[in-house]
C-alpha cells in the first residue's frame, strides 16, 4: 500500500527560511535510508505558499486566489510517496525522520487509494475468500 507523507508548513518554511546544513545532511541520510529500504517512490519539497495559488470552485464559477495563505498549520511544505506494508510501518519510518523544521513541526501520514481498496462489501467477500482459501488448502493436501 502507498502513503503520502506530508510535512506540514511552519512560519519558517512559509517565510522561505532554508534548512540548515546540519538538517540538510540529516535529511539526505534519511532519504538514502528510505531509498535503500526500497520504500521511497517520490519526494519533493515545496516553495512557500506565497508562490502558489488556489482556485475556488462554486458551481460553474472559478475564482483564483494568489498566495500566501494565512492558515500556516494547514499548509504543506513537502511530501513523500512511500510503498510500505502497513500504516504502522509508515509511522515507524516517520518517527525516524529528523525534525524537518527548526522549531516544532508535524508530519501527516495519509493512505493513497489503491485499485484493490476494499469497498463496503468487504466482509462477505472476505468470508468467501477465506472459504476458497480453505478449499485450496484442502486440495493441496490431497496432492
Amino acid at each position: 500500500m502507498r502513503f503520502m507523507v506530508i510535512v506540514k508548513a511552519t512560519k519558517d518554511s512559509e517565510a522561505g527560511v532554508m534548512p540548515s546544513e546540519q538538517l540538510l545532511t540529516a535529511m539526505t541520510k534519511y532519504n538514502e535510508d528510505l531509498a535503500k529500504a526500497g520504500i521511497m517512490l517520490a519526494g519533493e519539497g515545496l516553495h512557500p505558499s506565497s508562490k502558489g495559488a488556489r482556485v475556488r470552485f462554486s458551481g460553474p464559477k472559478r475564482d483564483v486566489i494568489d498566495g500566501p495563505f494565512a492558515e500556516t498549520k494547514e499548509l504543506i511544505a513537502g511530501y513523500w510517496i512511500w510503498q510500505v506494508r502497513s500504516r504502522e510501518e509508515a509511522i515507524e519510518w516517520v518517527k525516524r525522520c529528523p525534525n524537518p523544521m527548526p522549531g516544532d513541526s508535524e508530519i501527516e501520514i495519509r493512505q493513497i487509494f489503491d485499485a484493490d481498496d476494499f469497498g463496503a462489501e468487504f466482509t462477505p467477500e472476505l468470508r468467501e475468500r477465506e472459504a476458497r482459501l480453505v478449499q485450496q488448502m484442502e486440495a493441496n493436501k490431497k496432492k
Partner: peptide
Amino acid sequence: HAAIDAVWRI
C-alpha cells in the same frame, strides 16, 4: 503490537 510488527518488518 502493530508497531512491533512494523519495527520487525524494518
